[in-house]
Amino acid sequence: MDILVQILLNAVIAGAIYTLIALGFTLMYSTAKFFDLGYGALIAVGGYATYWSYKQIDLPVWLAIGIGVATAGLLAFLVERFIYRKLRERKASGTILLIASLGVLTIIQAVIAIIFSSQFQTLSKNIGSTRTFNIAGGVITDVQALIFISGLVIMTGVGIVLSRTLFGKAVRAVADDSTVASIVGINSPRILGIVAAVGGAIGGLSGIAVGFDTGIEPLMGMSLLLKGVIAAIIGGIGSIYGAVLGAFLLALIENLGAWQFAGEWKDAIAFAVLIAFLLFRPKGILSK
């Protein structure tokens, strides 16, 4: 039975990482309404900004994580403000924005590779101090427990802000219809900028989490982004709790599949799940 427990725990760890990515993505997607590939690069930006401040200039770990999150959020804001907003003002279609975001992704990845080289880097410094917890015969590390907890905290935080605050109301109004929101006096571009910064910061945090758990490389964002997107879609795009449910469901199916068949099947299984949802339940588990 031990192996099943461990596999369930593995699914929880993977699900926690997917949760972070899906939360940031669904937040940005539901307001900006286009498939932002650049989000994948922000994941790497968070990881590398932390790598730089923690391992290259030796700042304390919490400060380094803060710098990583802030850098990703700031960059997301700048990209929204100076690229996507300009395009939107010219009534660019979603396709144009998608292509622009592909450009953003490629440029950021290339710049990271030039600055830090393409080597696989680890964020953790001294592993001797890693604590592990035994749960019913399975093991998780302290880093993984932290990732799981931060996923839940951010989900709750975003959920509360969206449902209980005036700002959240404005975000939801923009998500419903940005033109109407503008007519009733909501500053849509400003809301989009703030949402991009928050979404980017969450994406950056997910990159930092992956970096501490395993490691970072410049091209890490794309495959993680796709997993986050699948989670967001099967959970019901635009729904915060749906994204979390989708993330854990996806991780569970992937890991059970890897257990029963072989690890190489993980990606194939993930996308098969996506296609099944698109065909039979296109609005996801929790449709709005």
Binding site: I7, N10, A14, D213, L219, S223, N255, A262, G263
Partner: peptide
């Protein structure tokens, strides 16, 4: 067990 070249999660394997 095989893993993909970019795999960052081999826990289940």
């Amino acid at each position: 067990e095989g893993v993909t070249q970019t795999a960052t999660d081999m826990r289940t394997e």
